[in-house]
Amino acid sequence: MFRNNYDNDSVTFSPQGRIFQVEYAQEAVKQGSVVVGIVSKTHAVLAALKRNAEELSSYQKKIIPIDTHYGIALAGLASDARVLSNFMKQQSLASRLTYDRPIPLSEITSRIGDRAQTNTQHYGKRPYGVGLLIAGVDQKGPHLFEFQPSGVTQEMVACGIGARSQMARTYLERNLDEFEGSSREELIKHALRALKDSLAQDKELTIENTSLGVAGVDENFKMYEGQEIANWLETTFERPEGGEGEGMEVDS
């Protein structure tokens, strides 16, 4: 019927100037569960919603610590993310070996950006079907970068990608002014609230389905899961109604 003739490979433009394979890859990101990242002056935080394929299966991995100073959160094809994270791990170790310094986040981000871009310009290759948030601290302080399958990378103050992430982004936009001056704990709460906004109506954040990653100035990147985050979930959501003002207002 209306077969699209311009989506057979990632090297052909449509007459409208679009590359459909790349756009489809971006759809794959939207299939993945939501991840959120925020930076303050002192900290970078990642929060992720983990899904389990079925009741009996384990939860998927959403946050991967790469080096001591940063980690990534992924939305989309986990296997593609693993390829990228292996590459990032190697590049990070190489930077430590040749220069004795932790790789700058802008550097590692542009390296995976370049890799992803080549996939969109070589016949027979497929774009990565995954979006990443790269968060951590380097010599210039805390950073958050967003990576897309197209090879586009951007530095962000706060960002959410994955399924229903528009809700999280709305929360982030409304509270944008507060992030810069936030403390570690406040930042984590913001990330959890943004994450919660993207949940389906009948879902809750639990210690099973939530992951956190935190890095700070003079604080290594660490992933928190399970019982470690119980208190954060409690203090963020279990407050009496209206107790924690702005977080609840945007809940509706």
Partner: peptide, 25 residues
């Protein structure tokens, strides 16, 4: 390098809202 290599040990319970310091101490 920092004197004591640290992954912050502050538990979630520790909700002391420390004032954000400048970029790098």
């Amino acid at each position: 390098p920092p004197p004591a290599p640290s992954t912050s040990t502050s538990s979630p319970k520790d909700t002391t809202t420390s004032k954000p310091t400048g970029p790098a101490p």
